[in-house]
Design a protein around this nucleic acid. Structure first.
Lengths: 209, 209
DNA sequence: GTCTATACAGAGATAGAC
DNA sequence: GTCTATCTCTGTATAGAC
């Protein structure tokens, strides 16, 4: 090694920094479009146009549409992970679950989209199965949430007759469901009110009675 | 009029019957593929192949992919309507809602798909806005369900602090959510058990406490 | 009304100059 | 690494014979 200290990665050349920055910009644009339009409807041209580069340049960074979108999903998953790990660990488990649900619904309402769960029948689903970054982030997140759920069950806050993974699926499903979007469309309700109702009707179904 | 009795529509020629039968077959095939693969992923060729006719023949019946899929959605909606109207009216309102939820989840699990709610960002959504048959069926269904919900609220079975349309959205969202599919994937649970949990965690969030 | 054959458009991916 | 120009494939829709 030419650098004296091996545990010092930030030594990136300007060129490499530029490279990384552009890659981030591409991923961010892809992530946004993926959310807005879905995998099949969005186009690589749109992503390139949004970033302001030529499509061929994009293909120097990512092997294809699948690869690009998998990276975008992994990015989103890592953001979520960051939020989860940033939650105060001294909060009761139920409060942490509630905060997570609230955050995700708010995100969904702000971005007009469903995060996190890949459409099961999309070509994207298969691409994600081959994306290690995504799979690892998802596994890690699942493990954390199962811990929280079991803690909440042990504390008598969550009904204990449900297996933890069932409760987890119920929770995740709620974050992917169209309730908040539906309500924004058909009724003239306040955003916070809509989210509040969604959180309530979800958690009340899981809470111990 | 050449026919003596005007109130006797079933006088269809054999030709017209064939026409109708083929149209039904097309709609059914389209409905299945729409469910399995989604609007953007399915192709008109597949529909034609499934029915066993040439694609050009299909275009004699329907103006385009949008039109065809709108008809398929309307068909599904009418099936749902039939189920709803067939439910015994002497059952308590909550039991009827529960039966509806159960039926839809079972359907979803059997067909591996989400019925009823059009992906909001799909091209299909716009086509549906222009489809009278679909819109009318949806409106009628909504009205019926709102009645049921209000009845259940009046009977003290459902929490009354939620506006009826909020409760309706919560219910509909549950039928579109991926919980049952998720559970089938990640856990080794029985179908009926999965549906039971889904119904429970949904309704317990809406029930009066 | 049904078929075969084809036109047309869109989008993923690549070639090759700079 | 980035660009312009192009290839190629797929999928919607139609023309025209029967």
């Amino acid at each position: 090694m030419s650098t004296p200290q091996t545990a010092q990665p930030p030594r990136l050349s300007f060129k490499a920094q530029m490279h990384r920055a552009r890659e981030d910009a591409i991923v961010e644009a892809a992530s946004r479009l993926l959310c807005e339009k879905g995998f099949e409807t969005m186009t690589v041209d749109e992503v390139a146009a949004a970033v302001g580069i030529a499509k061929a340049s994009l293909y120097k960074h990512f092997a294809g549409k699948d690869d690009l979108c998998a990276a975008a999903m992994a990015h989103g998953m890592q953001q979520l992970q960051a939020f989860v790990h940033g939650l105060a660990p001294e909060l009761p488990a139920l409060a942490r679950l509630q905060a997570l649900l609230h955050w995700q619904l708010q995100w969904q309402l702000g971005h007009e989209v469903t995060l996190w769960l890949a459409p099961r029948h999309s070509a994207l689903a298969q691409a994600l199965r081959g994306c290690d970054a995504y799979q690892q982030a998802q596994q890690s997140l699942r493990a954390t949430l199962v811990e929280w759920i079991e803690a909440a069950q042990a504390a008598g806050q969550l009904r204990a007759d449900l297996p933890a993974d069932v409760a987890l699926c119920a929770l995740l499903a709620r974050t992917a469901e169209p309730m908040v979007a539906l309500l924004r469309e058909c009724g003239a309700y306040d955003k916070e009110q809509v989210i509040g109702w969604a959180v309530q009707t979800c958690l009340d179904g899981l809470r111990s009675r």
